[in-house]
Computed example of a mutant assay.
Amino acid sequence: MPNQDYVLTMARYNRWQNENLLAATDGLSPDERRKDRGAFFGSIERTFSHILWADMMWLHRFSGTPRPKGSLSDSVALIGDWDEFRQLRGRLDGQILQWAHDVSSDWFEGNLRWTSGMAHREFSMPRKTVVMQLFNHQTHHRGQIHAMLTAAGAQPGATDLPFMPEIYASA
């Protein structure tokens, strides 16, 4: 079950993979980033935007950072300027990693309560489960981005945990 070692590994992996996919995306034109490719959120850019929004929402729930603006339906429209998005994504990855370094072992005990705007009701779930949701959700949608990038002719790097470079594995 999740503990601090788990969240540190996954926060490091998150940063590595975001940088990996963003670097591959940088080679595409804005039109190519925004092209509807038939994925759940349509485009590479909209999918990146949704991941950013969801990560901000979960970090808000975990640690009280600012809540992202808008609702799930707005989550795909956070990217205006690509360079600004890349900076925001990098800062958020740093915040997630810092949270992982700082989280106490007792944080994982008990439930997390939150009200879902999407479901219009309150939830209470084990913290060990919802922290897995944060990282599973990222990985799921990054897989979609990887497939869209590959179809667009880009070549993202490795994605398997055993190949995580030491610079990330010890961050």
Rank of each mutant, 00 (worst) to 15 (best):
E45Q: 11
N18E: 04
P68E: 13
F163A: 13
M164F: 10
S73E: 14
H137I: 05
V103S: 14
G70I: 04
E19I: 01
S71D: 14
H146T: 03
N136T: 10
D26H: 08
G64W: 11
H146P: 00
Q95M: 13
G157W: 04
Q133W: 07
D55L: 12
P30I: 12
L8M: 14
L134F: 15
F108L: 13
L21I: 00
A24S: 04
Q155L: 07
S63D: 13
P165Q: 01
A151Q: 14
G90F: 04
H141V: 05
D74E: 14
Q17D: 02
A152R: 05
E19G: 03
P30T: 14
S170H: 11
N14S: 13
I51H: 03
M1A: 13
T139M: 04
L22S: 01
H120G: 14
G80F: 05
R67G: 06
D74I: 02
W58Y: 15
N111K: 15
D74F: 07
D160W: 08
M1R: 10
Q17N: 11
P126I: 06
V131P: 08
L72V: 12
W82T: 02
R89V: 00
L78N: 00
W107P: 13
H120R: 15
D93A: 09
D74P: 11
T150K: 07
T9F: 11
P68D: 06
F135R: 01
Q138I: 08
E32T: 11
W82G: 01
N20E: 04
I79V: 00
P66L: 12
Y168Q: 06
V76Y: 01
Q95G: 02
N3G: 15
R61E: 12
M118T: 15
V130N: 13
R86M: 04
A158L: 04
G143S: 06
R12I: 12
D55N: 14
R67L: 13
G117L: 15
T65F: 09
V76S: 06
Y168S: 05
D93L: 09
W99P: 08
S63L: 07
M10T: 12
L72C: 06
A11F: 09
P68T: 00
G157T: 07
D5T: 15
G90R: 05
V103I: 15
Y13R: 10
A147E: 02
V7S: 10
Q138L: 07
S71F: 10
M57W: 14
A23P: 03
D160K: 09
A23T: 05
E19W: 04
D74A: 12
V130H: 10
D5K: 08
